[in-house]
């Protein structure tokens, strides 16, 4: 569902049941967005807790692509990295970062960690790899084994962003569907789902 429309619908649903004209007591879109992001995070966590879902092929529709420019460390020129404009969702093995590939390139960087890299450097595999990446805080460090890779100036990073990093016009897929998200949201703000027929309960 479109993110802006989802927030509008949630605001309408809440305001309909609060029954007040006082704008101070009405729900704020930012508040709704925050509560929705909590629901979204808990849903993703539940979804990816199952290793079968974590290893499933077709869940990249939760991801967004970012084109980032490679920076070079000022003191150590061999260190190359990109600074992420949106933080990825925290998943095992940094799987929140789906793929890193050069802009217009057809191969993807190999996923590794800083600790594994110490081992890989001593193995043959390091010579047969073109490029590796690992996540270091809000940066993705890029490690090249071949000199031609230094020609890469921009990379396309595909990652699963948090709810806040989606634009209002972005389409968001909830793992359990939009209705579940709305249900969780209304329970979070303390409203049980009703219709206008039994409004006289209040």
């Amino acid at each position: 569902m479109i993110k802006g429309a989802l927030i509008e619908a949630a605001k309408f649903e809440i305001d309909k049941q609060s029954g007040t004209q006082d704008s101070l007591k009405q729900s704020h879109p930012k508040d709704i967005e925050y509560q929705l992001s909590l629901a979204y995070s808990s849903m993703l966590k539940q979804y990816f807790a199952d290793p079968r879902n974590l290893m499933a092929v077709d869940f990249d529709f939760y991801a967004k692509k970012y084109t980032l420019t490679i920076s070079q460390d000022s003191t150590i020129p061999a260190l190359r990295y990109v600074t992420l404009t949106a933080l990825p969702f925290e998943l095992p093995d940094n799987l929140g970062v789906r793929s890193v590939r050069p802009l217009g390139g057809y191969f993807s960087f190999d996923r590794t960690t800083e600790e594994s890299l110490e081992t890989y450097r001593n193995l043959e595999v390091f010579s047969f790899t073109d490029a590796l990446f690992y996540k270091d805080g809000s940066k993705l460090m890029l490690v090249y084994t071949k000199d031609k890779m230094k020609l890469i100036s921009q990379v396309v990073v595909k990652l699963i962003p948090h709810f806040e990093d989606f634009l209002p016009t972005d389409n968001i897929e909830f793992p359990m569907g939009d209705a579940e998200a709305m249900k969780i949201l209304l329970q979070l703000v303390g409203i049980r789902p009703t219709d206008s027929v039994n409004d006289d309960v209040k």
């Binding site: 290893m55 092929v57 990249d60 793929s99 190999d110 996923r111 595999v125 790899t129």
Partner: peptide, 15 residues
């Protein structure tokens, strides 16, 4: 092994 999209074990498989 069903890791073609994540490429989580790419380096391990190669070695």
């Amino acid at each position: 092994i069903g890791d073609e999209s994540n490429k989580r074990y790419q380096t391990k498989a190669r070695q």
